[in-house]
């Protein structure tokens, strides 16, 4: 029955890290509160007692120093996993991420490999306001040199984490706080699913059709996958069958999956919890325009956070983050 075991996303991530640390002595973890606390969002829970403080290293609140140190250690053959507690904190360490971690391989003509996994928490919807609620993966996908992983379920989270650790490139691994299965934050039941105990990988650049459909394609990732699936259930009762595509990784991006689905449904809705402007939704719309224009029966529709910071007050926050209702309504207007 062990194959049927269900895990939360946080536990799946911690298990992936644990298995890789057992397999490879070069893997270690650095970050704020990753030790005794087990990671503020549980991504390193249980690892300290198993591997000790030499390999599960609590750091000072010095993101520039320890993320830069990850680059330096990786250049020497180590495989560090570093945690930036909230992606919103990137402002204090962006130089080390953008100008060094992302670019040094290229500037060395491919001679330098930097196998770093940079984990970070994303997402809002729980009243943490503008400096603790963003997604921002598009900011990092925009710069060349970083692979971008954004899982939506425990099963995907484990396989993608093992793949990330084994990759010889910098990988940014974004986990949505509301998907981690925390005791203190509401999460979709669907994010907890069956996770094999064995080690397995999920290749980057392979989107997952989370729900097949014939009438409209909804492209999304992370929390929006669950909102889109909820919306799809409503739509199904109205006779609209939505296909929900979970991108899972932004870099590399599975363009073929998006195009194949458009060829099938002829309608595209992109749903994103990141900002609307200059981001993921625009990128997917551009791919549709470039490579599947003749298959589209309607203009591409985009639903994302309008270009405002994430507000605090509940009615405000719920208004700007795409909701199940808003997704269903957008899909309806397209399908009509």
């Amino acid at each position: 029955m062990s194959n049927e075991r269900e895990l939360t996303m946080a536990k799946a991530i911690a298990e992936a890290i644990s298995q890789e640390m057992e397999r490879d002595q070069h893997v270690f973890v650095m970050g704020e509160d990753v030790g005794v606390y087990g990671g503020i969002f549980g991504a390193t829970q249980g690892l300290l007692s198993k591997f000790g403080p030499e390999r599960i290293m609590d750091t000072p609140i010095s993101e520039t120093a320890f993320i830069g140190a990850a680059t330096g250690a990786a250049a020497e053959g180590m495989r560090p996993i570093v945690e930036l507690m909230f992606v919103d904190f990137f402002g204090v360490c962006m130089d080390q991420i953008y100008n060094h971690l992302a670019k040094n391989t290229y500037m060395s003509g491919g001679n330098l490999h930097l196998p770093v996994v940079l984990t970070t928490a994303i997402g809002g919807g729980y009243g943490d306001a503008a400096q603790h609620s963003q997604c921002l993966y598009s900011v990092f996908a925009h710069t060349p040199g970083l692979k971008i992983v954004v899982p939506s379920t425990a099963y995907d989270a484990k396989g993608l984490m093992i793949e990330a650790i084994r990759d010889d490139n910098p990988v940014m691994y974004f986990f949505h706080k509301g998907l981690m299965g925390l005791g203190w934050m509401r999460y979709p039941e669907r994010s907890v699913n069956v996770v094999p105990e064995r080690s397995y990988t999920i290749p980057f650049g392979k989107a997952d059709v989370k729900r097949p459909g014939t009438d409209i394609t909804i492209v999304c990732l992370a929390m929006m996958v669950h909102c889109a699936l909820d919306a799809a259930e409503k739509l199904s009762k109205e006779g609209i069958e939505a296909e929900v595509i979970d991108l899972r990784t932004l870099v590399p991006l599975d363009r073929e999956a998006v195009i194949a689905s458009i060829k099938k449904t002829h309608k595209l809705l992109v749903v994103d919890e990141d900002y609307l402007g200059f981001g993921l939704s625009g990128e997917i719309a551009a791919i549709a325009a470039d490579e599947a224009f003749e298959y589209l029966d309607a203009p591409v529709k985009r639903l994302a956070v309008p270009n405002v910071p994430i507000p605090y007050s509940q009615p405000l926050e719920q208004f700007v983050i795409p909701s199940v209702e808003a997704i269903a309504e957008a899909a309806r207007s397209l399908a009509r």
Partner: peptide
């Protein structure tokens, strides 16, 4: 960048400090 000679540099002022810490950390771990 010359990984064989363990040399690198950066055009960003102050960027050498953290990266060198990481190399030292790797030496310690090994």
């Amino acid at each position: 960048f010359d990984p064989k000679r363990k040399f690198s540099c950066s055009g960003i002022v102050g960027a050498s400090f953290p990266v060198a810490c990481g190399a030292a950390l790797a030496a310690k771990k090994k």
